[in-house]
């Protein structure tokens, strides 16, 4: 029994669920993966239009700055929202078979990560060709940023998923929080525009740190700032640890409540 419920021993299950998520989403749809791109591309188009013709933001190649962070933000916000319904979606399984519920959250997170990787590949090609005119060495730091991005998002998804089992409010409250966070994170403006005096508070938000690191690596084509990297890594470890604790504390109740 014990071996049957540890997360690593159920990697076949996790992979099976990831495969299912991807298959279900893209089969019998003509445009398939392109649909995933429609929303971020539309938003990027609108934001570029607004911030280069209406509110003229002083950033060279604003489009390039925007796509360096926008897809990351999109990944984080879509993943966090998905965490509010992932467990409810699998209620039937949870009620009939003993399985590590983390696997359900992790597989949902991995499915989103696969989509993100494809988007990122496209962003990298566009930036290398149209902005840098070569392949910047800084792109080598991406695996590190990806690991932090995945860990941070998962660390937030676990308690959100737990809370969503008990309280429907989460599904209503989270979109509000996310839309506030969109303006409070450096998605369409650089963190350097935040007044010096407020920057410490601003960077308490790990998502702001993560986005800034992406701007450094993708847009500025320089190696990530070590202090920022250290800070976001610590926060990610703390959030992931806490998230797992919360999830493990309550998961034995999921089958009864779902």
């Amino acid at each position: 029994m014990a071996s049957n419920t540890s997360l690593w021993s159920r990697r076949t299950l996790i992979w099976g669920l990831v495969l299912r998520n991807v298959k279900v989403k893209y089969q019998r749809s003509l445009l398939g993966f392109l649909w995933t791109l429609v929303y971020p591309l539309l938003m990027v188009g609108v934001l570029v239009l607004v911030f280069t013709t209406v509110i003229r933001i002083q950033i060279d190649h604003f489009w390039a700055f925007l796509i360096s962070g926008f897809f990351v933000w999109n990944y984080v916000s879509a993943s966090l929202y998905a965490a509010t319904y992932t467990l409810a979606e699998h209620a039937q399984i949870t009620r009939s078979i003993a399985l590590p519920n983390e696997a359900l959250v992790v597989s949902a997170a991995l499915s989103k990560l696969i989509e993100f990787l494809i988007e990122l590949a496209l962003v990298l090609i566009v930036l290398a060709v149209a902005l840098h005119h070569h392949l910047p060495a800084s792109f080598a730091a991406l695996p590190l940023l990806l690991a932090i991005q995945f860990g941070l998002t998962l660390g937030l998804q676990l308690p959100i998923a737990t809370l969503a089992v008990f309280y429907k409010d989460v599904q209503h409250a989270l979109p509000l929080l996310l839309s506030a966070l969109f303006y409070l994170s450096p998605v369409f403006y650089p963190a350097s525009m935040i007044p010096e005096s407020a920057r410490d508070y601003y960077f308490m938000n790990p998502i702001a740190e993560l986005l800034t690191l992406y701007h450094q690596v993708l847009y500025e084509a320089r190696l990530p700032d070590i202090a920022l990297l250290g800070s976001v890594t610590l926060k990610t470890a703390a959030i992931l640890g806490l998230g797992l604790m919360v999830f493990n504390r309550f998961k034995h109740l999921f089958a009864e409540i779902l």
Partner: peptide, 15 residues
């Protein structure tokens, strides 16, 4: 142990 409490729990209709 193998459990069958709800038949086809985990089936996905689209697959």
């Amino acid at each position: 142990s193998a459990t069958v409490i709800e038949l086809g729990a985990g089936f996905h209709p689209e697959l």
